[in-house]
């Protein structure tokens, strides 16, 4: 099973629930990642404001921060390699990384050939 690591931006009151705007992406991501865990997928999350050492200790993440800055977070690693940056993964993406049966997005995709496109 692949390991998924999410490196979050600094989250506390002010960017989370009590911020000027509650991030819908955060709320959705929490639900999607919880779903992934229930599917047996190992998901780890690291919050820049609380576990910055995890960012500093990982050469890939440290390099990403130096190049792109914290505003480019979140960063998603799958088995240590960059899989996604700047947004949280969807359930479809999580399923793909986990090798779970692909979720068919409703209303589209079903007409496709299943691999050729």
């Amino acid at each position: 099973m692949k390991t998924i690591q999410i490196f979050d931006p600094a989250l506390c009151c002010s960017t989370g629930v009590c911020g000027t705007e509650v991030g819908q992406a955060l709320v959705t991501a929490a639900a999607d990642l919880d779903w992934a865990r229930q599917q047996g997928l190992p998901v780890e999350r690291f919050n820049l404001a609380q576990q910055p050492l995890a960012f500093a200790d990982n050469a890939v993440v440290r390099g990403f921060l130096e190049r792109s800055g914290q505003d480019a977070l979140p960063l998603v690693l799958v088995d240590g390699e960059v899989a996604l940056a700047g947004r949280y993964p969807s359930r479809t993406e999580l399923a793909r990384w986990a090798g779970l049966p692909t979720l068919q997005p409703r209303g589209e995709g079903s007409t496709c050939c299943g691999g050729c496109c």
Partner: peptide, 23 residues
């Protein structure tokens, strides 16, 4: 939280973390 990464992560990142933890 911040001490161990000072000088390791970019300065603006460290400042951002400190601001988050100043509420």
């Amino acid at each position: 939280i911040v001490g161990p990464v000072r000088g390791v992560l970019p300065d603006d990142v460290v400042r951002g973390i400190e601001e988050q933890l100043s509420g």
